[in-house]
Design a protein around this nucleic acid. Structure first.
Lengths: 143, 143
DNA sequence: TCGCAAATATGACGAATATCATATTCTAAC
DNA sequence: GTTAGAATATGATATTCGTCATATTTGCGA
C-alpha cells in the first residue's frame, strides 16, 4: 500500500507544518528524533521533497527545512506519488490489466472499495486540514 | 498491504477451487500460465499452502494439487496470514505503538477505516462465496 | 572574503521480497 | 519391485526497500 518512505515523508511534512515557517526553520538533526525517523533517511526524504517543491529549504548557518504557508494546501496524494511513484497505490490488487470496475476481478470489490476510498481521501485531504485536526485535539501527531 | 506472494496465493487457490477436486488434480506446470505466476514461485507457494492444509496435493503420476470441497469454507484472511504473516496487514499505518482508535494519529482515520474494512472483508469472505460470484458472472477470474 | 554550518549528491551496505534452479522423496502404474 | 512422474526441500540469485556514511556545494555571519 504505502512504503515506509511515504509514511515517513508524511510524518515529516506534518511536523514541518506544525513547527516551522519561513522565519523559523529546523534542521534534520533537530527533527528526526521527534518523529522517530532515522536521521540520514529523513535527510534523504526531505531532500527529495524539497527537490519537488513540497517543502522548502535553505543552506548554511541558520538554514534548515520549513514548510511555506503556500504549500499547506498541497494534498497528501502528492507526497505519496512523489515518494512511492504513482503506480504503487493504484495498481489492481491482482495486478491485472483487464480488471476495472466495469469488469471486476474476483477480488476487486473486496479490496477495491477500501482502496479507492483511501486514495480518494489522500486526494482530498490537504496538509492544512490535517494539522487543523491536530491543533483542535482531534488527533495526535505521532512521534 | 499485501505482498505479491499473498496475491498469487489467492489467485492460485481460487483457480484450484474452480478447476479441481479430489478426482481432478492439476500440476503446477499446467496452472502457472493460466494465472500468470512464475512456475517455480507458484510451486513454492502451493507447497506452503499445502503444508498448512489450505490446499491438498498428491505426488507421483497422476498427482497434483487440488482443493478439497471441505476447504472451500476457508476464509481468505487465513491465506494472507499464512503467506504474509499476521502482522503485516494489521500494523498501524504510521507504525505507532500509541496509535489506536481511541487516540488516533493524524493519519489514522484516513487510512485506518479503509484498512480495517478491508481486513473485515478478508475475514468474512470464504473461497466458496468468491467462486460463486465468478460462476454467476458477477466477477471474472483473473489470468 | 573567509570559514563554518547547513543542505545536497552520491553511493555503499543490509534486509526483505521476488524469482529461479536443482536435488530429493514419495507414489501410482506397469 | 522398478520406473517415471509428480510434489517437496533447499538454496542460489535478483531486485527493491530501508539504512547509513561521506564528500561536495552553497550561503550566512564575522
Amino acid at each position: 500500500m504505502l512504503t515506509n518512505s511515504a509514511k515517513y515523508a508524511m510524518k515529516a511534512v506534518l511536523f514541518l507544518a506544525l513547527n516551522t515557517n519561513e522565519n523559523n526553520k529546523m534542521m534534520v538533526k533537530d527533527i528526526y528524533e521527534r518523529i522517530n525517523v532515522p536521521q540520514s533517511y529523513l535527510a534523504k526524504l526531505l531532500q527529495e521533497l524539497s527537490k519537488h517543491n513540497i517543502v522548502s529549504s535553505s543552506r548554511g548557518p541558520k538554514g534548515g527545512f520549513y514548510l511555506d504557508d503556500k504549500n499547506k494546501s498541497i494534498r497528501l496524494i502528492k507526497i505519496v506519488d512523489i515518494i512511492d511513484g504513482e503506480q504503487r497505490l493504484r495498481s489492481c490488487m491482482l495486478s491485472l490489466k483487464e480488471c476495472d470496475n466495469e469488469n471486476p476481478c474476483a477480488l476487486h470489490r473486496l479490496v477495491g472499495d477500501a482502496n479507492s476510498s483511501f486514495i480518494k481521501n489522500l486526494e482530498e485531504t490537504t496538509i492544512e486540514s490535517l494539522i487543523a485536526d491536530v491543533r483542535d485535539g482531534k488527533s495526535i501527531l505521532p512521534l
